[in-house]
Each structure stands twice: as C-alpha cells, then as structure tokens.
C-alpha cells in the first residue's frame, strides 16, 4: 500500500489526539500536562498543514501552522509560569492537590 503524507496525516493526527487526551485524563503532574498540551498542539499543526495541502493551498495551511506554533508557545510559557507559581504556593505540582475548589 502506498501511503501519501496526506493519508498518514490522518493517522498521525488521530494518534497524537488520542495520546494527548489520554494524558490529560491520566497525568497528574502539571508540567507533564503542559507537555500533553504540546502534543495536542503538534496534532493541530500537522492537521492544519495537511489540510492546506489537501485543499491545494499548502501555503495557507503552512501559514496557519506557523501561527499555531507561535500562539501555543505563548500559552505554554504562560502555563509554565503558572506552574512555577503553583509550585511555590502549593509545594507540589500534583494537580490532584489542586482540588480545594469543589462541589
């Protein structure tokens, strides 16, 4: 079977999507959660680039992918800054300890 990059894109996106969301459900370490988010962002980048290619507008998809990388890097930075602050005040990065607000 001859798979083109576009066909593998679907497989890749779904795989990363699954891994990322599984991690968000299971992982308790805040920094690792940010890593999971980054994995999801990879899925989005791949999806956009591939979608651009699929619709014959490679440069459009690539441009979107670029923007996503930039934006989500900022989000990651913000998340890490928050994580440091959490570490300082909660003494841990276990998000299960961040469960004081409930009910």
């Amino acid at each position: 079977m001859n798979l083109s990059p576009l066909d593998t894109a679907i497989f890749l996106v779904l795989g990363l999507f699954g891994v990322g969301f599984y991690a968000l459900l299971i992982v308790r370490h805040l920094i690792k959660l940010v890593i999971a988010l980054q994995i999801l962002v990879k899925a989005a980048v791949v999806a956009l680039a591939a979608a651009g290619a699929a619709s014959g507008k490679l440069e459009l998809g690539a441009s979107l992918a670029l923007s996503v990388i930039v934006v989500d890097t900022v989000v990651a930075v913000v998340a890490l800054a928050l994580a440091l602050q959490v570490r300082k005040h909660f003494g841990t990065l276990d998000v299960s300890e961040l469960g004081t607000l409930r009910g």
Binding site: L24, L25, I26, V27, R28, L33, V95, S96, L98, G99, T100, L101, R102, G103
Partner: peptide, 9 residues
C-alpha cells in the same frame, strides 16, 4: 455537587 470534583483530570 459530587460531579464538581475539583479534579482537573
């Protein structure tokens, strides 16, 4: 209220 676990996961 139990459903509002406060747990991110």
């Amino acid at each position: 209220r139990v459903t509002q676990t406060g747990q991110l996961n």
